[in-house]
Design a protein around this nucleic acid. Structure first.
Lengths: 148, 148
DNA sequence: TTGACGAATAAGAATAATTATCGTTTACTA
DNA sequence: TAGTAAACGATAATTATTCTTATTCGTCAA
């Protein structure tokens, strides 16, 4: 099975350099796997997928690198109404709709939600970097199965 | 040590009745303790405080009643960029500023943030009930202790 | 009022999720 | 290519959450 080792590799190395991370094989696979999981995967789910490509990888490594990615801005932590850590790639701007009944999280585009006014001059000298909006309510499926 | 058992008791019983909860001693203490913790306490922190008044209480009881309070709308779950559940009294409308460095959460009034346009007609037939905004950034204290 | 019944509760046990530790291996720099 | 710091993997420890069960609470009929 022929493949070019440089395809996809260079962008990842650049990404690591940009974020001050050393580029390890495990991290690259972790990152690639998460690119194929567009939702809000749990660490266990990511681990299961990565294990197919690196059977010897440890769950602790997955946790450590997820936290590291979050810390360095490669991933974004999704505010949780789950029982476990959830993340997503820090790609395009969107927010979340959280069903208060079944806890499902779905994405909503910023344009479908409207934009907040400027984030300058917040109380206490807080320096804003971004904002995350959770719209909380009842999803369509739960509306059907629920009386009143 | 004399104290009037009705002071503070009746409002709590009313609150329970309003939310369809039976008024138990543990719940009352839990509620009273949380009133003295205006921030966004974790279950462990609440547990530590409650234990001073009810040494026999179990952490599980704290968790269960916190969840129950959230379910019935007495408490509100704070969207977390913490590793653990955080709650607050469900009092007035505000959002949160989360420091991505020290994880502190401070409240921000809705008027200081601006208001979102209407929440009608969301994609997928999602029925919105409320929204919660997290402004993520660096708090004043962390700005000082951080180079570049 | 009192006692039996059913529902709701609290405690502790059990489980799940996450983090810390530590010996070994790997990646970057000179 | 050797030196050094960082990362890895295994597993233990800790923390968070759920489950189970004995007990308690409130109600209602006698």
């Amino acid at each position: 099975m022929e493949h070019s080792p440089t395809v996809g590799t260079r962008p990842f190395r650049e990404l690591c350099a940009d974020h001050g991370l050393t580029a390890t094989h495990q991290r690259q696979v972790l990152y690639e796997v998460m690119q194929t999981m567009p939702g809000h995967p749990s660490p266990e789910e990511v681990y299961a997928r990565v294990k197919k490509r690196i059977p010897a990888i440890s769950l602790a490594t997955v946790y450590k690198n997820i936290h590291l990615f979050v810390e360095r801005g490669v991933l974004k932590e999704v505010s949780m109404h789950h029982g476990s850590l959830r993340v997503e790639l820090n790609n395009h701007l969107h927010h979340h709709m959280v069903c208060s009944h079944c806890k499902a999280i779905t994405d909503i585009e910023e344009k479908d939600l409207g934009v907040l006014p400027a984030l300058q001059r917040l109380p206490g000298g807080f320096q804003a970097e971004r904002y995350a909006i959770d719209v909380i309510g009842i999803c369509a499926a739960c509306q059907k199965t629920k009386r009143s």
